Simulated assay, not measured.
Amino acid sequence: MQLSPTIFRKTISSRKLIYALWSLAALVVAITKAAPHRHNNYIIFRSSFYHFSSFQPLYLSYPSEHHDRFLYGPVFPILFAPFALLPDFIGMFLWLCLSVAGCLWAVRMLPTTEKKKITILWIAFLDLYTALCMQQLNVLIGACILLSFIMVEKKREWAAALFIALGTLTKIYGIVGLVFFPFAAKKGRYLAWLFLWFGIIGFLPILLGGGSYVFEQYSSWIDCLGGKNTENFFSLSQNVSLLGIVRKVSGSTEYSDLLLLLPGIVLFALPFIRFRQYRSTTFRMNILASTLLFTILFSTGSESSTYIIALLGVGIWFAHPARGKVNWLDIALLVGTLLLSSLSPTDLFPAAIRKNVIQPFAMKALFPSFIWIKICIDLLRTNFVSTETNTQRTQTNDSN
């Protein structure tokens, strides 16, 4: 029996199928990572709760308990408490389920069509699995960034501010949600909610752990992140970014990352001066895609498991082409991303190329970097309002 193109299209267009695959990924990862030495990051998260509960330093190494160090904000151990108090397998499984459910909910809430949401979920699927295998927070951070945008779109300033505060005070990446401020309808209310939520959530550890201890942990967190930046320069598993490509290919420590970061910020920020384009949904969705990619491509802390954030951006970009239609360059960039970025951490990719080319030179970031640059150029050059109006007019004529 042959699988006809029509049946194939209907299959991959099924919301139930992609939802089932995302949900199944949580169960598969929980089972395959059940052995103690295979869920190190979950152990780090669980240990952070017990360290906080006993007023121990959060940011020291504890080699007798786990490898690596805890790097998230002092708020995180409190939020992780419901999972830390459960047996390991159950806690880890529920943690992975929460990650998947949070990200699915965020994508489901995007102001776009069902078909485009399914496209985004398919494009991000492999990197979702990679992130789940590391039991990382990145899936939920991606969801927080999406939701900070979505709630601005829905004019729910209180909720947008909540997700920014949650994302920032657990992992600093969440702060990029602030870039959606220009799209907010009631900017004064938005700022008021930001101050309120940062105050409430930031004060929560102080309420439970005492002022002197928690202030010391906040200070240590900032110091830890600053020191980690230099450590990441030539790490095989870190600095998987546009910054990392230049650093690792050149092999140089003589220049500052600001040499790339400042032009990157300018290129990222310039589209925001195109105020007349704000009323285009496609323009705003491309801003969202640019933000998700920028967060990863300009961070020395980027690693393979953070690319769920970037691939959500790739999916949003591909589902919302600037000129209304996907062209051959878009397809080539997407294929390159899926092969070199999404597949490279898996056993389906040749190990020799992964170990000798992809990892040493941060090539996982190559095609996402091309996509980000293309998004920025499109955001500066394309008349999104005109393109959107013409597309809607064509669709209306076709329906008549």
Rank of each mutant, 00 (worst) to 15 (best):
F283Q: 03
F275P: 01
L292A: 08
S280I: 10
G264L: 01
R274L: 05
F275N: 08
R279C: 06
T300P: 14
T306H: 08
S252Y: 11
L270V: 15
S290C: 06
V246P: 00
L260V: 04
L292T: 03
V246I: 13
L292S: 04
E303W: 14
L311H: 09
S256L: 10
L311W: 08
S256R: 02
L270A: 12
I273H: 14
S305T: 13
G313H: 07
T253H: 14
Y307L: 05
L311Q: 06
T253S: 15
S250G: 08
Y307F: 14
L258N: 14
F275Y: 13
L267A: 13
Y307M: 04
G315D: 03
L267K: 01
G264K: 06
Y307I: 03
T253A: 14
S302L: 12
R247M: 13
G315K: 04
S252V: 10
E254L: 14
V314P: 06
P263F: 09
I265G: 07
A310P: 04
L260N: 01
S280E: 12
F298L: 13
Y255G: 09
I296K: 03
F268S: 00
G251S: 09
K248R: 13
F272W: 12
V249T: 12
T306Y: 07
F275L: 13
R284Y: 07
I296C: 10
T291Q: 00
F283D: 02
S305W: 11
L260I: 02
T295N: 09
I309L: 09
S305Y: 14
I245R: 02
G313L: 11
G313R: 01
Y278L: 06
L259C: 10
V246M: 07
V314Y: 00
L260W: 06
A310C: 09
L258A: 13
L311S: 09
S280Q: 12
N286D: 10
F294N: 04
I287C: 12
L267C: 12
V246N: 01
L261S: 14
D257H: 06
T282R: 10
A269M: 12
S252H: 12
S250K: 07
E303M: 15
F294C: 05
M285Q: 07
S290V: 03
S305F: 10
Y307V: 06
L270G: 01
S304V: 02
F272H: 06
Y307G: 02
R284N: 02
V246S: 05
T306R: 04
Y278T: 00
F283T: 05
L262M: 13
I316M: 00
R276E: 15
I265T: 11
L293N: 01
S250H: 07
I265C: 13
